[in-house]
Amino acid sequence: MKAVVCRAFGPLTDLKLEDIASPAVEPGKVLVDVRACGLNFYDGLAVEGKYQTKPPFPFSPGGEVAGIVAAVGEGVTNVSVGQRVLAFTGFGGYAEQVAADATRVVPIPDSMDYAVAAGFLIAYATSWHALKDRAAIRPGETLLVLGAAGGVGLAAVEQGKALGARVIAAASTDEKLALCREHGADETINYSTGDLREQVKALTGGKGADVVYDPVGGKIGETAVKCLSLLGRYLVIGFASGDIPQLAFNQLLLKQIAVIGVLWGGWAKANPALDAANLAELLELHAKGQIRPHISETYPLDEYLTALNRVMQGQAKGKVVLLTGTAS
């Protein structure tokens, strides 16, 4: 099979598309013929050796795929050969086949095409866990989403609305903010042309946001902490800016702010039943049309570098997906 292979940490240009052996089908594993793979920021970090999890070499990046079950290992009963599925793999997705733990493989309805399914799991499961489980956001509260036109950001915009929040979407261009409004944002802020704190203050009558959802970090994250209301919650999702915020601890003290880390993958592994229930809720919301992943760009597998650079350089809106076959 063909796969994008990383043999040593380094620049993305060191990745190679190679012919390698298909994964073995071990007990408890499911072999998936990959039709599509969603791209995520951590894919590039992993290749560069900057991600907190460092897989053994050689490895393929790619943590979420959709495709068809090709084979199942001993003891697997939740899916069968020929079934359409999505799967969380952690790594290995930039390939024509990947082996995934059966517990992380879920059937998808015929109404969900492979490209959408491949861009669904990480963004939506992360955001749902963050807003529902970690922040316990309530109807009527104000949610400020940073990087709101990215994969997880756009998911948070939609899910915030589904949970009854008033959503303020913040992004770096007017074009991105237009997309956020299409996906339900009540208000938008261009933080490259205006003062984020002052605009949030104006939109909330001086109160501030109840919850900040931050996949960006850096200076914007530092400012966003100051946008929170009394007893506000700051959700740490990631650091797409490349910098970890230096938080103003006096702000945390004075406003009694809770800083909440969100690492969906680790939580899901430790709480499989709760994660499965969350995913069932998300699939139901998708069936009802309340959430609709925005697949902005698709690329064939051999254009992996162009696709990944789009994500790493912050140029993507919604999700970017690699296709290894017919995505339908």
Rank of each mutant, 00 (worst) to 15 (best):
A3L: 01
F88P: 00
F57L: 12
V262C: 12
P58L: 12
M1I: 04
A70N: 02
G150A: 03
D302W: 09
Y114W: 05
A66Q: 00
S127T: 07
E182K: 09
G221W: 08
D43W: 08
V85L: 08
L177M: 11
G119A: 01
G232Q: 08
A240Y: 07
G242C: 13
M312Q: 15
G325A: 13
A115D: 12
G314A: 06
K288M: 12
T126F: 01
Y114T: 00
I122P: 00
K317T: 11
A66G: 00
Y213Q: 03
L252S: 10
G38T: 07
I260M: 05
L323N: 09
A66F: 00
G266M: 13
G92M: 11
A125T: 10
F249Q: 11
A162W: 04
T193R: 13
G44W: 05
K54A: 12
F41T: 00
A118G: 12
A100I: 10
K219I: 14
P300C: 09
V5Q: 14
Q313K: 12
H294I: 03
E18L: 10
D14S: 14
G28V: 03
P11C: 09
V72F: 10
A169T: 08
G49Q: 02
A327W: 01
G218S: 07
G184V: 07
T193M: 03
L253Y: 12
R181I: 05
A71S: 14
L143T: 06
Q290I: 01
G265W: 05
T142M: 02
I168P: 11
L231I: 00
N190D: 14
P55D: 09
V76Y: 12
G73V: 01
A123P: 07
S172K: 11
I237C: 06
A123Q: 13
A115K: 06
A224P: 06
D110F: 08
L17K: 00
G164K: 09
P55L: 14
D133R: 15
L144N: 08
Q52E: 04
L143D: 01
A66P: 04
Q52G: 00
R134M: 07
L283S: 01
V25T: 15
H286S: 10
W128N: 00
D19T: 14
T298P: 02
F9T: 10
S127M: 11
G205W: 13
R197P: 06
D14E: 13
A202C: 04
S192N: 10
A162I: 05
V236C: 06
N271I: 04
I137Y: 00
Q290P: 00
A123E: 08
D210Y: 04
T324G: 02
A87Q: 08
V105L: 09
K29G: 02
I220S: 06
D186A: 11
K54G: 07
T103I: 11
G242V: 09
V259R: 02
L177N: 06
T126K: 03
V259P: 04
G10S: 13
G151D: 01
L323I: 15
G93K: 05
E48K: 15
V152N: 06
Y299V: 03
T77K: 15
T77Y: 02
A36K: 03
S229F: 00
P23L: 09
S111K: 05
